[in-house]
Amino acid sequence: MLEARLEQAQLLKKVVDAIKDLVQDCNFDCNDSGIALQAMDNSHVALVSMMLKAESFNPFRCDRNIAIGLNLVSLTKVLRAAQNEDILTLKAEDAPDSLNLTFESSDKDRISEYDLKLMDIDQEHLGIPDTDYSATISMPSAEFKRICTDLMAMSESVTIEAGKDGIKFACNGDIGNGSITLRTVQDVENKENNIEIALTEPVSLTFSLKYLVNFCKAQNLSKTVKLHISNEVPLLVEYAMEGGSYLRFYLAPKIGD
């Protein structure tokens, strides 16, 4: 059986909030290393890969592989009943038809308990190869969100160009064009303000801004975001959490003219 206790419900609330507009029905695949989710959006353009490591829970117990088939709209309805600071416990049997969730207020004067019906989801799994990306950019997640939102006001697509002079986000729209160029920032006092660019070769790829703006809903999970880019392969947008947990989004590039 699964028993997983989170010190603060807000971790799961934020993760589900960040992905529920991209994917609706998906399996939480549980085993002794944690809770994983991999799901593509309906158009097969974006992929969500979540890993909540056992280390992010206290305690975490799951002695065999358990697939928890969830509708994220339903899960959101239940999670809305949890306060951010509540202690959240997930429980499921080995072949579950429901997921038990309890929310305990931190001063323990209130315990809420919900059982959520599960679905049998036959999910496609994609093999994601380990990739040495040509460019890895680490930046404040709020900055990335601002760039994507600002450019989406002008255009459907953004071209991300990483070179020795920095990283340039450029768009062309009906009303005109725009671009934002970022250079390396080293803020010793506040490392989360750093912009780091690791480059092995220049890259230039075009992506749909609609999806990038959607990924930015994960902004609350981490103060920094990492973009991994190589020519002609999907972009990886990564939000790292404590305990080695992460939320990753993959986005297929736009090609041709």
């Binding site: 158009s43 353009v45 974006a46 994609l126 075009t206 749909s208 590039p253 041709g256 003219d257």
Partner: peptide, 14 residues
Amino acid sequence: TPIQNDLSEYFALI
């Protein structure tokens, strides 16, 4: 206008 690509072109189904 560039064409939106499909992720399945890059990642094999397993």
